[in-house]
Design a binder for these strands. Structure first.
Lengths: 211, 211
DNA sequence: TTCTGTGAATAGGTTCACAGCT
DNA sequence: AGCTGTGAACCTATTCACAGAA
């Protein structure tokens, strides 16, 4: 089984969403159909799917259910994930209440915050905890993924606590590069940079139309 | 002046942030230093900067202020942008109050919502308007960028209104591919897909450590 | 005929390595 | 010596085009 690139992973997420939206009576789907839905080419779709073994049928297409569960396997979505969130601001609130996470098996089980005024407040049943107890809590029972929604100044410090607590995957919304050991994966979502990429495109018919 | 790739644009955003954080007495910065800050290589930095003309000085480095304003030029950040947001949910609230946007010249000037209970509510001085008047408002005075934070079912419909209202750039937080004309740029931020990319990495020491 | 699987060709992005300023 | 600018090499991703199975 070959190496799978980051852009392929991103597209697999997309394909999975489309497969799950298919009418239940529909049995198979062609690479061409998936390509139209996802805004790529059929060759691209076939290459992506080939990256983890071939099981489409020539002349027919791909069996929808098999393909979906195969993609879930690749993306590691057959299991549940324990997620904690640090930073009980507006962005934290938006993410805690985002239904798409739980649907995919990402369960936010704790929220941490530094501001004493926020500690103890409940967000739909989840009591906001003191970030001071984060490291201890992580050592007591471990979590899979952490989401950082703190102000930028606090982010690296929090990342340190997470790493020491054994967290191996971090989704970071603070606009900074986090220094972490080799075996920890970080994805940074930088809202301002997203807008900047749009202003770049406006300034010169640049990157073009990319979805 | 050559074509600039999407990944270069993303890195330029990063570089700009670092340049702005430099101590004011610091005059120049080397590609090596920028590389360390941004987690790339010096060769990569030099290539990125070369994409829009050479004005570093051999043996010295790049003049910080010049470089910063040149990058601002490339990214189209010398001007102000008028931005509207559609969908006054928690994510909308998080973005409206995010200080990083205004700092960069992205001014959210109106918020639209479908739910009548929300219409008229004020978010730090901004009165939430009926999405029914969106298209008319856009035609009266145009905006540069729109941010969609509606539920996924409403997103395509809103995108249609935006396009008819002359908006040429859309930042989309609904997990769906928006169909828009060629001359409209869309960037979709898919939160669930970000987590899926992390679960993929956890499932197999996959993509590796990418910042 | 339809639609996958895949080698080969192409394009695109990154790294190397070194000439040339300061 | 220090550090940029840049051709060339390299590596990775995408597209082409067609053989082969249903």
């Amino acid at each position: 089984m070959r190496k799978i690139s980051e852009s392929t992973v991103r597209r697999l997420s997309l394909y999975l969403r489309f497969l799950e939206q298919c009418a239940p009576q529909k049995i198979t789907i062609s690479s061409d159909e998936l390509a139209r839905l996802g805004g790529t080419t059929s060759a691209q779709v076939r290459r992506d799917l080939l990256a983890f073994g071939s099981f489409g049928r020539r002349g027919i297409g791909y069996p929808i259910n098999d393909l979906a569960s195969r993609i879930r396997g690749i993306l590691g979505l057959q299991r549940q994930y324990k997620v904690v969130l640090i930073g009980a601001g507006r962005m934290g609130s938006a993410l805690v209440h985002y239904p798409g996470f739980r649907e995919r098996g990402f369960n936010i089980t704790a929220v941490y915050e530094r501001d004493p005024k926020q500690i103890g407040v409940r967000w739909s049943g989840l009591r906001i905890r003191d970030v001071g107890s984060l490291e201890r809590d992580l050592k007591r029972d471990s979590v899979d993924i952490a989401i950082i929604t703190t102000p930028v100044e606090a982010a690296q410090d929090v990342a340190g606590k997470l790493v020491r607590g054994g967290v191996k995957a971090i989704l970071n919304f603070a606009p900074t590069k986090l220094a972490v050991p080799e075996d920890v994966v970080v994805r940074t979502v930088n809202m301002a940079a997203e807008l900047e990429s749009l202003s770049f495109s406006l300034a010169r018919g640049g990157i073009g139309h990319r979805e």
